[in-house]
Design a binder for these strands. Structure first.
Length: 495
RNA sequence: GGCCCCAUCGUCUAGCCUGGUCCAGGACACCAGAUUUUCAAUCUGGCGACACGGGUUCAAAUCCCGUUGGGGCUACCA
């Protein structure tokens, strides 16, 4: 009979929630949902100095933003909590004292500084930098003498002397380590907190985790943990080590490669659906020749299979994320896009806090024009500023190109007249006016269109001119054409 | 250094387990063309990879060994 499927995400709150962690969380989530199992969130906050409340919050925010809801964990409760390791100290002490009485662990009185010095010496001598076993066999009198001195002690696990430790990784297959490589590692720090290896083992067992799905950087910790499970007689979960997320230089993805905090992507206007889809494809793909890569959460859950996860590291390809985000942005309903873009427009001061209905319609019309051009929501303000501002930011290149022909002033003046006379100011009527004028002047429509674009938007590129002018409105267009002429075309002053 | 893991286009990958249908398929990026008032989007086409060397075999991207390369770990961090 299969054990109940239970997986966990066990981040430590020691920094902004990382995209790599997000991917690990996603794979755990997909595995759990695919098998109708439980997805547990456990916070590994056993590092007193590095853990911060902000980091903790960023974990919650990040997971929620991606929609990776946990079935058990902080804020949700569950039978097997608490889910913060800092609240589970008595449990760890219990297991430690059991190991102590069984002499499978012992007190170590060496200080970090002493250890560091000795390690350096070993390194210098070209030897393995394992713990030298100084406190391994302390007699009772020596121990109490050290206690008497007020020395704090840590607890070390007594490694079995020989043999090998092996396990079958769901992604990599058989992995073997020589026990002789391992040293007596610390399981309980002198501050009374457990170390990662120990706490993770105790908790995974007590929380009845069936599958440990984590990054490849956890692979070399596995033998230590396996030995721990065995020594405490705890059930051993299955392991799956995910390939790492890499930077452009193929080293483990870190800040020096650019943004790694999930919140930065969110703040730049990456959509959670895009992020989720993109992350899922890093190290995993459906095994088909010609497979669609745009996959919804439901499709991901349905297709996900841990066995088809790749073994090799995956470079975080920002360009593909951007493309994918553009795709999701394009398929977002306009009303929703308004909601999504509004914060960015407000933040840049282009749109005020309160929004009248007509104002809102304007925003909507503007977004309809740029929707298929945006890759990030944060692109919206710079791309649409001329729709909201009174004064224009003229792009130098666009302007100089627009005023190249000597008769540009006359053309624009003629166009203004036509525009003024239009009964309706719609993209159709504007187009009609522009094209017929061009024909009358015996020039290509482009000769009229480009200067006009420069005049009304200040830019050389953008949405179609006619629809853009309709959204801008007649008054603004006429005003801007006049302003453009007096600013850049000297012949207009006299005329 | 030691140990562990990994190795198909620039990048993400399919194929590898169960050798032949693969002078290797898809996606992003790039280039060209189409469309167009620009940009974008879209469509079409193109460029582009089995790290190397040995085996095994009638036949190897696929199996085995080695080399090289890359990465990870090597804490009283997680």
């Amino acid at each position: 009979m299969d054990r109940e499927i239970r997986v966990r995400m066990a981040p430590s709150p020691t920094g902004p929630f990382h995209v790599g962690s997000a991917r690990t969380a996603l794979f755990n989530y997909l595995f759990a949902r695919h098998h109708a199992g439980a997805f547990v969130l456990r916070i590994e906050d056993t590092d007193l100095v590095r853990s911060t409340p902000e980091s903790l919050q960023s974990i919650y925010d990040g997971l929620r933003w991606l929609g990776l809801g946990w079935d058990e964990g902080p804020g949700r409760g569950g039978e097997l909590g608490p889910y913060l390791q800092s609240e589970r100290l008595p449990l760890y002490r219990e297991f430690v004292s059991k190991l102590l009485t069984e002499e499978k662990a012992y007190h170590c009185y060496c200080t970090s500084e002493e250890l560091e010095v000795r390690r350096e010496a070993l390194r210098a001598a070209g030897k393995e930098t394992k713990y030298d076993g100084k406190c391994k066999d302390l007699a009772e009198p020596e121990r109490s003498a050290l206690e008497q001195q007020g020395r704090k002690s840590a607890v070390r696990f007594r490694m079995p002397s020989g043999g090998q430790t092996r396990f079958t990784d769901m992604i990599r297959g058989e992995v073997t380590f020589d026990n002789s490589l391992l040293d007596d590692f610390v399981i309980l720090k002198s501050d009374g907190f457990p170390t990662y290896n120990f706490a993770a083992v105790v908790d995974d067992a007590m929380m009845r985790i069936s599958h440990v799905i984590r990054g490849e950087d956890g692979i070399s910790n596995t033998p230590r943990q396996l030995l721990l499970y065995e020594s405490m007689g705890l059930p051993i979960p299955q392991f799956a080590h995910l390939p790492l997320l890499l930077g452009k230089d193929r080293s483990k993805l870190s800040k020096r490669h650019g943004s790694t905090a999930l919140s930065e992507f969110r703040d730049n206007g990456i959509l959670p659906e895009a992020m989720l889809n993109f992350l899922a494809l890093l190290g995993w793909s459906r095994g088909e020749q010609d497979a669609e890569e745009i996959l919804s959460r439901e499709e991901l859950i349905e297709r996900f299979d841990i066995a088809s996860v790749n073994k090799s590291g995956a470079v975080f390809d920002l360009e593909k994320l951007e493309w994918m985000n553009g795709h999701y942005l394009r398929s977002t309903p306009l009303e929703k896009l308004v909601e999504l873009a509004l914060p960015y427009l407000r933040q840049s001061g282009l749109v005020g806090k309160v929004l009248s209905d007509s104002h809102r319609r304007h925003v909507r019309n503007v977004l309809a024009l740029v929707q298929e051009r945006i890759r990030y929501l944060s692109d919206v303000p710079s791309m649409t500023a001329y729709f909201f501002c009174e004064s224009l930011d003229y792009d130098e290149k666009a302007v100089s190109k627009a005023v190249k022909d000597s008769d540009v002033g006359q053309r624009l003046e003629a166009l203004s007249t036509r525009l003024e006379g239009l009964r309706e100011f719609t993209k159709e009527s504007i187009e009609q006016a522009v094209r017929s004028l061009a024909e009358e002047l015996g020039i290509s429509a482009g000769k009229l269109i480009h200067p006009t674009r420069a005049a009304v938007t200040g830019q050389g590129v953008g949405p179609g001119l006619f629809e853009l002018m309709e959204v801008l409105g007649r008054e603004k267009c006429l005003y801007r054409i006049a302003a453009f002429r007096s600013k850049f075309l000297s012949d207009a002053v006299s005329g």
